[in-house]
């Protein structure tokens, strides 16, 4: 793995060509998965029929492909991308390979809020408020974890432990609400807790895309600081990093990314844990390329999971969340085993 240097005037960067080659390869794979996903479903389309559905505005299958399948696939990709980046960022900042949005309370906060909303507010207020409730829950939980972990600044270990405690407490709230609410609520809550992109439309896609861009731009500006996060505080301070300020900013970005992802897709777990690992194991130690890889692996994982979920048991259309772990876990374990040998 040989690093190269890119210099244009005052602009300069180091980069790892092998890692960026993998980024390009993954993008190709994603395009392929996108095309296959567009073609497969209750109505199966051959290559010619797919092309026609995409190009001809009056094609009879155009509605299925352009208004049902395409936004759903893109929403899955965005959710996976946001969770992959959030998990990667949390693992960097917490200096802990087990950190993920599920473990530090963000997902549990969103879940408790979403389930409560479904139980008591969905009827009077309608379903449009669900993402808002989930986002507020995620933000509230993240803020609570940060505040409770504070003592002359926060340390990664305190954050992880506080997050685990918070996740357990909020998990109990979720279970309690499920237990005391009517059965119809329980069913929709169960789908939400599994994670699903069923019924996604273009307005969902554009809203989530906007959020992702708004959060990824500041993150890109802070990449240099992210790369110092795995060092211990004394070293990072010695290198001129304002440790506490940057830690707070990066945690806020990670929580927000995870929060918006679950707001639109429900509590997809495991993506935020496994995507960064795939990126790291397959790309070595490198900065931006590793983040982009975590983003792409996350996106690809949720896209594939949803493809399987809506085609494997036709005509059943299952929540994608079921298959995230079913696909991700064996691949993850295989990678660990290969590494040992």
């Amino acid at each position: 793995m040989v690093e190269r240097t890119l210099r244009l005037g005052r602009f300069s960067r180091r980069f790892l060509p092998t890692a960026w080659a993998r980024v390009a390869a993954l993008l190709l794979v994603m395009m392929l998965v996108l095309l296959v996903s567009l073609a497969l479903g209750r109505v199966m389309l051959g290559p010619g029929a797919l092309l026609e559905a995409l190009m001809n505005p009056h094609a009879p299958t155009g509605l299925i492909v352009r208004e049902l399948r395409l936004p759903r696939i893109l929403l899955a990709a965005l959710i996976g991308a946001a969770l992959g980046v959030a998990g990667w960022l949390l693992q960097q900042v917490m200096r802990n390979p087990l950190a993920s949005p599920d473990i530090i309370g963000v997902t549990s906060g969103a879940s408790a809020a979403a389930v409560s909303y479904l139980a008591w507010l969905a009827v009077p207020l309608g379903m449009a408020g669900l993402p808002v409730a989930a986002m507020l829950g995620a933000a509230g939980a993240a803020l609570a974890v940060y505040t409770l972990a504070w003592s002359h600044g926060v340390t990664p270990l305190r954050l992880v432990l506080t997050g685990i405690g918070m996740a357990a407490a909020l998990g109990a709230v979720t279970t309690l609400v499920l237990a005391i609410s009517p059965l119809t609520t329980t069913l929709s809550a169960y789908v939400w807790l599994t994670g699903s992109v069923y019924g996604a439309n273009w307005s969902d896609v554009s809203s989530l895309a906007l959020w992702c861009v708004a959060l990824l731009v500041p993150l890109a500006a802070l990449m240099r600081q992210v790369m110092l996060a795995p060092l211990d505080d004394a070293l990072a301070t010695g290198l001129g990093l304002a440790v506490q300020r940057h830690r707070a900013a990066l945690l806020a970005l990670a929580s927000a990314l995870a929060g918006v992802a679950v707001a639109w897709g429900g509590a997809f777990v495991f993506v935020g844990l496994v995507a960064p690992h795939l990126a790291r194991r397959l790309s070595g130690y490198s900065g931006t390329a590793q983040m982009v890889l975590a983003l792409l692996y996350g996106a690809l994982l949720v896209m594939l999971a949803d493809l399987v979920a809506r085609t494997l048991f036709l005509p059943l259309d299952l929540p994608a969340g079921i298959f995230v772990a079913a696909l991700g876990a064996p691949f993850f374990l295989a990678l660990l085993i290969r590494e040992v040998r």
Binding site: R7, R10, S12, R13, A221, L228, G240
Partner: peptide
Amino acid sequence: QLVQLGRHPHQRWLSQWSPDD
């Protein structure tokens, strides 16, 4: 990679690997 981190205080967003680094 470890030694490269030492250049952090001298770098800017634009210039992250100058000839001096």
